[in-house]
Design a protein around this nucleic acid. Structure first.
Lengths: 232, 232
DNA sequence: GAACAAATTTGACGTACATCAAGCTCGCCT
DNA sequence: AGGCGAGCTTGATGTACGTCAAATTTGTTC
């Protein structure tokens, strides 16, 4: 693990406050690995052996049932995934595959649970992280159940705009077909949804989306803190 | 609080292992209240002042946006709700209203956070509970995104059957319109979905549902551990 | 038990969204 | 530069599901 990577990881809220000894104990048994694109990292139903920390690339979390598949999330550096399964020592609920070349630190689950029980600051950080994740999924459920697919797209665009710093130009960070699946729709329908949003000043050119009439779009999307703000 | 109630609460996995002093400290500041039906207990967006512990009746958790409303869950004794907001000291993401006359113990959030930081067993129990809740919501998301409404109903019936002890007769524990909303459909459509399931041996008489051909229904519903089993 | 309100069911219809089948665009390869 | 091939778009069509309105059942109150 490179020093800059270690510093980035140390800065994550999950690891920030913990004692140096705990941090060292946790990363002593860590594996750092580079994966090519489109590699299945974990499989739904398998026992959970590692907490994963992304330091490079991007990973898709997805779930399947009866031949159907849906994108649950995409993960980018620097962040962790599948904390809940690690803590409960339970099987993965989602599968994960790399989208691009990715660099990932693997922390043995047993070590995570061990340090959890000895370092109260780490314990507190894990609880915070879990509560945040839980609330994130609840917001996602509200988004799915209370909004149409066009409304979900509109709010997605506003959310990305807010987090980016390109003003009214937004860069889609995933392929459109993956975005469609994430938003709970088909690629065909996503295409048509973008067309509908033209009426609210949305212009699409490949992965570059320009929001020309922010007021119109906001007025249509009606974003709200308790669904769209991932910091609350 | 009656002694039997206290014993029931103490038996919850969240409170089971903790030190007696911690338990006492936690419940010293508790309020016990009886509420009539259809009372709004908490409102989406309000700051979170109490962890709620149900000891009698039933409560509906729901969420609203732009004039629409959806049922997120129904809570029955003995269990807690809105743990995540309590831990993070964040605003409620859902509203709650009593469905029937209900008896609820209110634990001040500050006390919960206080005891959390002093009792490691309680801390561990909270993490377990949060991880379980998180995984529950993920399963629910998979259910919503991967299945049609009829498939969701079929699996719901199988789940209730498994947890009850009435053999192939199942008692719907909530009104049909609420069940419909919980499953992400309209009451009209729930009615029609039941009719479709007649073809798989499902008979409905008010809140009493009989599953006559369990193999047929199972074959159609294709239940799976990673979506439908709430213990994993 | 009559009278009323609320919940559920039913049917007709409309809308949102998926599916299927072409075309199109754009990056990538030799 | 030419030519795959994957992803994206477009149009035609089908299906799942919502909406509206009315009938029916269920529950509740006096």
């Amino acid at each position: 693990m490179k020093p800059t990577e270690e510093a980035d990881i140390r800065a994550l809220s999950l690891f920030k406050g913990m004692a140096d000894e705990s941090f060292d104990a946790l990363f002593r048994g860590a594996y750092v690995q580079n994966f090519p694109p489109m590699i299945e990292l974990i499989t739904e139903g398998d026992p959970c052996d590692f907490l994963h920390v992304m330091v490079g690339g991007s990973v898709e979390l997805y779930a399947s049932w009866n031949g159907r598949e849906t994108t649950m999330a995409t993960v980018r550096p620097v962040s962790t995934f599948i904390l809940a399964a690690t803590i409960r020592d339970a099987p993965y609920l989602m599968s994960a595959r790399t989208i691009e070349k990715s660099r990932i630190v693997l922390l043995p689950s047993t070590d995570v649970r061990e340090v959890f029980s000895t370092d109260p600051v780490f314990a507190r950080a894990i609880v915070d992280e879990l509560a945040k994740c839980y609330r994130g999924v609840i917001k996602n459920t509200k988004n799915l159940k209370l909004r149409t697919s066009i409304e979900r797209l509109a709010n997605y665009l506003l959310r990305v705009r807010k987090f980016g710093d390109n003003g009214d130009t937004v860069h889609l960070s995933m392929e459109k077909r993956r975005l469609a699946s994430y938003l709970g729709m088909t690629p065909e329908n996503l295409s048509r949804a973008f067309k509908t949003l033209q009426g609210y000043g949305v212009e699409v050119d490949g992965a570059r989306v320009t929001i020309n009439k922010i007021d119109d779009l906001t007025n249509f999307a009606k974003p709200e803190v308790l669904i769209d703000d991932f910091t609350v």
